[in-house]
Amino acid sequence: MSQRPDLHTLTGAYAVDALPEEERVLFEAHLAVCGACGQEVQELQATAARLGAASVAGAPAGVREQLLVQIDQVRQERPGPGVDAPVEAVAARRVVPRWVANGLGIAAALLVVAVGGLAVVVASLQGQVADLEVLAGDAERTSAELRTVTERLAELEQQAGEPPVLTSSALTDVLAAPDVITVSVTHDDVLGRVVASPTRGEAVFIAENWSPAPSEHTYVLWLITPDGAVPAGLFDPDEQGRATRVMTGDMARATAIGITIEPEGGSPVPSDEPMMTLQLG
């Protein structure tokens, strides 16, 4: 376990579903910020699907009938932003991946909206940087652009006054700890998961399917300790309702993780009972 796993080489294992649960969760968090891995995973999943499609077996006759009855009673997930015109999306499908086509246009646009959500911007820019790193070998022009974005990223992180939303190395460190534990709680579809290493006193919080916090509010993570609640970081879910957050504070003293909604910028003490609690150990 002393060797640091290189997350980028996990694309293959991920595409054939060969990662154990905790590593899958962590790798998905990495995927959210690594454009290069995202692209490769898409291709390898398409390849794996071909392996799957090589096996054809008719399902028993009753299955179709049962399904048609069943779906009539199953509520569908609601469309999120931008899923309104899917048919047009097929027609206008780009051959070039979106991130290449839009390139720095996105980064520029994100800088403009930076006032609204620094954390989100930082996460997006990290993705952009990863993308641009891939191109860096191809063109000198790109490396100049990469520098610009990297500088902007550093600036934004400084302004935000918060540690980066996610760094691969922090994830890798937690993942590589011999005593890593995972605690998950799901309310309806809303998932909160903590991957923690008590010996290292480190933890990563992962959110899936979270609605945005009310305007001018943010989600706050708390370490529940014998002496009370200690703030451990803020998070804002992305458009897919996901967030990954390296938690601050001494995990070794925490008996649980709590989540509340607080005014933007956080609060010194929780203003309410936690909306979700993850018991550790």
Binding site: Q45, E77, R78, P79, A89
Partner: peptide
């Protein structure tokens, strides 16, 4: 059926 809305044609085929 339930999560069809998550399918994004730009990220791969329906079959995949």
């Amino acid at each position: 059926w339930r999560s069809a809305v998550r399918f994004d044609p730009e990220r791969g085929s329906a079959r995949t």
